[in-house]
Design a protein around this nucleic acid. Sequence first.
DNA 1: CACAAAGTTGACGTTAACGTAAGTTGAACG
DNA 2: CGTTCAACTTACGTTAACGTCAACTTTGTG
Lengths: 133, 133
Amino acid sequence: MTEQTMMIREMCDAFDVTPRTLRFYEAKELLFPQRDGQKRLFSKRDRVRLKLILRGKRFGFTLEEIRQLLDLYHVGDQQHTQLSRSVSVGRERLADMERRQIELSEAIADLKDQLGWGERMLRTTALQGEAAE
Amino acid sequence: MTEQTMMIREMCDAFDVTPRTLRFYEAKELLFPQRDGQKRLFSKRDRVRLKLILRGKRFGFTLEEIRQLLDLYHVGDQQHTQLSRSVSVGRERLADMERRQIELSEAIADLKDQLGWGERMLRTTALQGEAAE
DNA sequence: CACAAAGTTGACGTTAACGTAAGTTGAACG
DNA sequence: CGTTCAACTTACGTTAACGTCAACTTTGTG
């Protein structure tokens, strides 16, 4: 029960990705499924990583950036030197994301503002009617 | 003074992009520089749009998504029908960005947590020293 | 045992967002 | 007036992240 493993189809259904994507991520060394014969078996660890990968993608990080960060979420398998690198990379990413958070707030405020104008405009022009078809 | 226009080089310096990028955005109908002979003249409006484009890119939106949104920031030039579309698109983007904001907060919290573990780990393994070089 | 279903490995195709290079044009300058 | 310099057009090249297709194994099923 501790080695709850999944086959490729289940993974695809669970995470809404294609087999091609999973194989691609393996080729890029983002995932490391074991094998049963030639079939891939995805462990709990792979699932955690995949979840992080997809999240990272939603934030616009490249797969390479994500890969460098992934090891941080797997403390224990690493040597001091490697972990040190991971932490360092992690700190940069964190700063990155915090900057983004601020900018995102600004953008949201802006957009709300513009939507306000747009909607107000819609109401007034609606009253006036329009000439051209 | 109301028609403060800039040439391509100034634009590039001001926004840290290449000429190619500006021409590309024009080709994709994201910018509409006027012409003086064959030279492009970028207006205040183009600059506002470019700023929004770059911001949009930082959030991972595609140029096409950005283009659909841009008109919203130019209320007044539009007909009711068009504005209505813009507002509708804008509302979706807003919802999008608000979801992102939440997810981003989660991701930041997660990453901080992991960094905590990583740093703690670093300190303890540092004390133990290591065998392998 | 035939065969369908699911998985596998190449290998080439595709899209977005520019990069880059080659040749042209127009204004400005000594 | 020759030339330098910036900007222009045209067009092919590039990278990331998969999609798609063809041609096998492997495994379960009637």
